[in-house]
Design a binder for these strands. Structure first.
Lengths: 119, 119
DNA sequence: CTAAGAGATAGACAGATGTCGATATAAGGC
DNA sequence: GCCTTATATCGACATCTGTCTATCTCTTAG
């Protein structure tokens, strides 16, 4: 049931490390963590994540999200895919609509990794 | 990426926002925060930051840092510059050597922004 | 004053990334 | 069945990024 190391999403990998300020990060750990930060390191994706997280019921339809940006629909879809692939956003399709919600532990674990509090 | 808030480094800008999960991040705030995440979103820079932060006395000489990587000296120098420019690392030259240390509030503020605890 | 070493800068280049328009897929309404 | 609407995928493009080699600047030793 538990996934092998190879199939860990970046989000799952983050929970395994002590804070970056406590001891030197291994090259391996850094390589597993950086995709998560890369996913966050785009203004559009940061706003998408924030919009989803602060939306009523903790989830948001793609149709709601697109309105907030002056970008094409494929571009928004691409950014959501990036956030989903690293494990920051969960996807569920209901009818014609697709809803995204934040993976709760993801941001907390990342914050712990950066902020110095062990997970 | 317009530099509308001219005198604030990304690190300083981060301290101004409520957590991403609490309310939607403005386009402006996202643009000011993402450079900080971009700086962190590279495995070499993550390790550099971690090495500096966990080094004795909280600071490390470039000469110490280079040994940990199989990269050229200019490449390490470039990555340190990126971390320095966004305000994550402080620089001080003593004699021939240059020492870097972590800007203490930087990671804590970022963690608060992501983790849901207001700064 | 000249030489040597630490670190920064400049320029070049391959590969990654963000964006678009066009098209595909899939579900619901007629 | 066919049409409409919501979302994903594809392919192309310009820009950004990480790395290198070569060179420059600054500091100390002799």
């Amino acid at each position: 049931m538990s996934k092998s190391v190879l199939t860990l999403t970046p989000v799952e990998a983050v929970a395994c490390c002590s804070p970056v300020t406590r001891e030197p990060l291994s090259a391996d750990a850094a390589s597993r963590i950086s995709p998560l930060l890369k996913a966050l390191a785009d203004p559009v994706r940061l706003r998408l994540l924030s919009l989803v997280a602060s939306h009523a019921d903790g989830e948001a339809c793609v149709c709601d999200l697109q309105e907030a940006f002056d970008l094409s629909q494929p571009t928004i879809s691409h950014h959501l895919k990036v956030l989903h692939e690293v494990g920051l956003l969960d996807r569920s399709k209901r009818g014609v609509w697709v809803y995204y919600r934040v993976q709760p532990a993801a941001l907390a674990d990342l914050a712990a990794l950066l902020g110095g509090v062990a997970p």
